[in-house]
Design a protein around this nucleic acid. Structure first.
Lengths: 249, 249
DNA sequence: CGGAGTTTTGACTGGAATCAACTGCGGTGG
DNA sequence: CCACCGCAGTTGATTCCAGTCAAAACTCCG
């Protein structure tokens, strides 16, 4: 934990409030881009973590496979994201291209040195780690406490947010991944994903143009169905989890 | 991602292979310990992240509450663990004492500076972050793809591992948390937790001395029931997730 | 002893998984 | 061009695991 704590909003040694000239992704900028076809793998769980990748274009899926072949997708990486952070000497997970992907590759040791030597890069790196951690938390909450419809709605909302950064309207969303990817990410089966989406369409919450192009018609309804109701903070009324004293006994 | 990459097995500036004299927890060592009674809260989700805590004794639960009061415990912290890492300016989650807990408190900004100034501390800090990330991954896999029995067995195994560091035998395990804590951690209900444990006892896999003291009788069976079968790597036979080419197209 | 909280047990329900067709689409090649 | 195939997705019927509701048993303390 702690990440922003180790500064992030403002580089430590650059008090001037201008964008830092050295950014995390800038250290990849002179590297050639490599292309991966949809479905091809970049790294495998357990392999020595020799490289770090910056996603330039396309989407990656990050996953682990357990015992009898069950797959759990723990996240997707979009342009600007970095693959290989939060690794020890071996990759914690496998990564495959969801669609056609372009990446820039960097040696893990060089990356490590660059980070370690630059007081400008370090906070950005910490911030990345903490974002990743926050995302993992979010995912855990979803997987342990949300039903199928809430999961799908949460997922669609996240995609919309993601898309909002690129385009201006966030109501037309592109869904590059297959139903199987969605299912393995949300802890459901393809059938349940399909049924739930059909149901949302039936109620007019969303509509589909192509397989991978959706439109959100009722964003407020979608947010309500996502289930992270904002009863936060209040917590005054009884319930099983009423707040208790905050300070030492 | 990346963490060990930023070194961890060997401090950067201490080539001699002796234990580093400055450890992450040593920076807490001159701080007074504070006690929290079972059930009391240390930090709350959304509050400004002003402090970092080192757990000295006892167990903390880390959790978030969504919408209609559902609680998801995202982890437990044991002695030696640090609360408040991976935070940005606000806490991502709440923390409460499971049992009687002693902690040492440190200001987040001082902690941040200590980390940032010390090339010895930094790698340890990264390692912590990465361990946390690895744990989160593990948890996501469990929550999305394991059934009730597999979850309980996985949990008991983790407790056994944890205990093995303290005592010599890891078969007598202490379970400080309540069934409700376990349920909220594993994404189940207390009834299912109770039933599953009863079933394991019935089959002689484990036995119970007190409510919070268990004994593992058949550790191999428990590991098998936990479900992370080690079919890893192989992945040669068809299946929906056969490996594909690893190198660029 | 009593009462509140925790855990266990039982009966029943329900939501998602499973099993199984079927549709729709894009490519391929005769 | 169209028949054919393969794959992704949809839809339906049924099953089953875990959730829900309810009550009893056990524990811990005052």
């Amino acid at each position: 934990m702690l990440s922003e704590a180790v500064s992030h909003r403002r580089p430590l040694n650059a008090a001037k409030n201008m964008a830092p000239d050295v950014t995390l992704s800038s250290i990849f900028s002179d590297r050639p881009t490599e292309s991966f076809a949809a479905g091809s793998g970049l790294v495998w769980e357990g392999d020595p973590a020799n490289h770090v990748f910056e996603v330039v274009e396309g989407v990656l899926r990050i996953f682990r496979i357990i015992g009898d072949g069950r797959r759990a997708i723990t996240g997707f990486l979009y342009p600007g994201d970095i693959l290989g952070v939060s690794m020890r000497d071996r990759y914690l997970y496998s990564a495959e291209a969801v669609n056609s992907v372009k990446v820039r590759r960097f040696s893990a040791t060089s990356f490590q040195q660059a980070i370690n030597l630059s007081p400008e890069l370090r906070p950005q790196f910490f911030a990345k780690l903490c974002d990743e951690m926050a995302g993992a938390q979010e995912q855990m909450v979803m997987l342990s406490r949300k039903n199928a419809e809430e999961r799908i709605c949460t997922f669609l909302l996240r995609l919309a947010d993601k898309g909002a950064k690129d385009r201006c309207d966030n109501l037309e969303i592109e869904v590059p991944m297959t139903r199987l990817d969605m299912a393995d990410y949300l802890g459901l089966t393809i059938e349940t994903v399909s049924r739930t989406i059909t149901s949302l369409i039936g109620r007019g919450v969303i509509s589909q143009r192509g397989r991978h192009d959706m439109r959100i018609n009722k964003i407020a309804m979608l947010a309500r169905l996502a289930g992270d109701g904002d009863c936060m903070g209040a917590n005054g009324s009884g319930g099983p989890y009423a707040r208790q004293a905050v300070w030492p006994a």
